[in-house]
Amino acid sequence: MSMNIKEGGRYCGFLSAPFAELINQHKPDVVCLQEVDHRNARNGGRDWLHEVAAATGMMPYFCQSMTYQGGGFGTALLCRYPFHRLTKIITTLEGAREPRSTGWLYFALPEGGIVRVASTHLALESSQMTIRHLADVNSKLFAEDESTPTLLVGDFNAAEGSDPISYAANRWVDLGRGYGNTYPSSREDITYAPCRLDYVMAYPKTGWSVVSYEILDCPELSDHRFIVAELTYTPNN
């Protein structure tokens, strides 16, 4: 599941319960979150992520990008199963308006097999900046490990067909092609032309199949639409 929750959940008063309810409806194995506030002044000092973890019975990991209003701001992950390994990186690009975190975890499925899932929120200042950010994420992810099947999930801040998404295709396969746009949600106060900004990218490029791929429009929760994807991976011999 991928959820850009828009400025810590501002549209719903920074409450965690509406997001937890949505997650509980879909029961994903992993939730990749972007724009998460952690105990900062904007969200009233609440630990939004641990609240959602408590309400969903998932294990949380907050990937702080930067300190913000006396607390933190960044991406996050929730996992239905324990994770035995995780890494957070922070990419600080010259000319970027803020540092950005990407976090990934490894978990084993009860039926066997280990998967790595990363949550990211790529730079938006320009296409070149987005590409440089993705290049940094790629280099660190693959320096750590090139053998584990991996999903890179989140807000790429780049539309389908753009240079960053073409660049992503060098290492990743886009599993969400043809399933619809993710931005904006059906909020009346947003007038951008519809596009895809949120992706589920998979590595290696073969062996993946999409069982279902749903785009959720929750205008009361975010300006982005959320993704719920059910995937299978069969290793190639």
């Binding site: 105990r39 630990d47 641990h50 609240e51 973890a53 408590a54 309400a55 969903t56 019975g57 294990m59 949380p60 907050f62 239905r80 199963y81 324990p82 994770f83 035995h84």
Partner: peptide, 25 residues
């Protein structure tokens, strides 16, 4: 121990103490 779908005691401890929790399998 970690039980799928149940609130982990460590999550509540983290909430109560402005802390973070981890689970080492």
């Amino acid at each position: 121990d970690f039980t799928v779908g149940s609130k982990q005691p460590a999550v509540q401890m983290a909430l109560d103490n402005k802390a973070f929790c981890y689970f080492l399998q």
